[in-house]
Simulated scan of single mutants.
Amino acid sequence: MSVLTTKEIMEIIPHRQPFLLIDTIEELEPGKRAVGKKCVSYNEPYFAGHFPAEPVMPGVLIVEALAQVGAVAILGCDEFKGKTAYFGAINSAKFKRKVVPGDVLMLETTMIKQKGPIGVASAKATVDGKVAVIAELTFAIG
Rank of each mutant, 00 (worst) to 15 (best):
K81V: 07
G76A: 00
M1L: 07
E44C: 14
P18L: 10
H15Y: 05
S92P: 06
A67N: 03
K113A: 11
K81A: 09
E136T: 00
S122I: 04
K124E: 13
F47N: 06
Q68I: 08
E64P: 07
V40Q: 03
I22M: 08
L20S: 03
V120S: 13
R16C: 10
A93R: 02
M57S: 12
E8Q: 14
T110S: 15
T84D: 14
L20V: 08
I12W: 15
I90A: 05
G36A: 07
P101H: 15
P45A: 02
M111L: 12
M106G: 06
V63A: 05
S41P: 03
Y86H: 11
Q17F: 04
E79A: 14
L105P: 06
K81G: 02
A53H: 12
A125C: 11
V104R: 01
L107A: 15
P45E: 01
I22W: 10
N43Q: 09
L28G: 00
L28V: 02
S2D: 06
A132W: 03
I141E: 08
E136L: 00
M1C: 02
F80R: 07
R97C: 08
I9V: 15
A73W: 00
T5Q: 01
P101R: 14
V131Q: 06
T109G: 05
A93F: 05
H50D: 05
Y46N: 08
M10H: 02
A48M: 15
K96M: 12
G76E: 01
G82Y: 04
L21G: 02
F19V: 07
F139N: 00
A85E: 00
A48L: 14
V104N: 07
I12H: 13
Y86R: 01
A65T: 03
L20E: 14
V131T: 09
I13D: 05
I13Q: 12
E26N: 09
V133W: 11
E29P: 00
G59F: 11
G142C: 01
V35Q: 03
Q17E: 09
E79D: 14
I134L: 05
E79F: 10
M1T: 12
P117M: 04
A67S: 12
L21M: 06
M57K: 15
E79Y: 12
L21P: 05
A93Q: 10
F139W: 04
D23E: 06
I112R: 11
L28A: 09
F80Y: 13
G82H: 13
G70V: 03
F95Q: 01
